[in-house]
């Protein structure tokens, strides 16, 4: 162990790991946010398929949510990271390039997280849609709103209101899941902590620092989510 204090390794001065950890924190946020929004898009499509799709679409969406919620996320990350080369290399060959192609770690990770969280998004959005009171939609049609206007003005805002707590949970899940991308070598918080632990021989210090960073992100975003929830449910009577 080094002779200086336990936390001096994270200084921002020369030789300190502060800047590296800060950059890694931004990377975690970037990959988690990208994954979350990819998942939201997939979830919106999946919820639409489950609510108003025909039978084949519903079966497809049901299969998707069942499979993705039943297999480990790490396996999906491996699939995207290693599997992408199986798909991309022949395409590269076709266009005359030689060598080995695969998705960059960031893209593979964000897509994998998006696909996994998309299954949770689908369920949250679907059940939120069903908790919108039918009378609200009927009222919109009764006052003569076209379907698209009713969707934009009535259905989307109300669905989001009911979905908000669920979306907050998914965000927390996605944030923690982003740590799994460290296995592909993407330098986010956990990977940076591993590197630091290896070169300073202070694994405990570095992994505790990683834990604190995740704790901080999840607390701050959790608090923000709570604020948003309060704001979007202003119109509801609370007991």
């Amino acid at each position: 162990m080094s002779d200086f204090g336990l936390w001096d390794v994270f200084s921002f001065g020369p030789g300190g790991w502060g800047p590296a950890m800060a950059r890694a924190t931004l990377m975690t946020l970037a990959v988690a946010l990208t994954g979350f929004f990819v998942g939201a898009v997939i979830g919106a499509l999946g919820a639409w398929a489950k609510i108003s799709g025909g039978r084949p679409l519903r079966v497809l969406a049901d299969g998707y949510t069942t499979v993705l919620r039943g297999i480990p996320d790490l396996l999906v990350i491996y699939l995207f990271y290693f599997g992408s080369s199986a798909v991309l290399t022949p395409i590269g060959r076709f266009f005359g390039a030689s060598g080995f192609f695969s998705l960059p770690a960031f893209l593979a990770g964000a897509l994998a997280i998006g696909i996994v969280s998309g299954a949770y998004h689908t369920e949250v959005l679907r059940s939120a849609y069903w908790s919108v009171a039918r009378g609200e939609i009927e009222a919109a049609i009764a006052v003569g709103m076209p379907r698209s206007l009713a969707f934009r003005r009535i259905i989307v805002p109300l669905t989001l209101r009911y979905a908000l707590p669920g979306l907050g949970n998914i965000w927390q899940l996605v944030l923690k899941e982003s740590s799994l991308i460290s296995v592909t070598g993407l330098v986010e918080i956990l990977r940076q902590a591993q590197v630091g632990a290896g070169s300073t021989r202070q694994p405990f210090t570095f992994f505790v620092a990683a834990a604190i960073l995740y704790l901080a992100i999840s607390s701050v975003t959790g608090w923000t989510m709570q604020r948003a929830e309060n704001r979007f449910t202003r119109g509801l009577r609370r007991e």
């Binding site: 927390q172 944030l175 460290s182 956990l190 995740y214």
Partner: peptide
């Protein structure tokens, strides 16, 4: 609940050897 499981695993497997 607010830290990733993988961090907890690393903390126990690699981290404890620091002492």
């Amino acid at each position: 609940r607010s830290t990733p499981l993988l961090v907890q695993i690393f903390l126990i497997y690699y981290g404890l050897s620091q002492f």
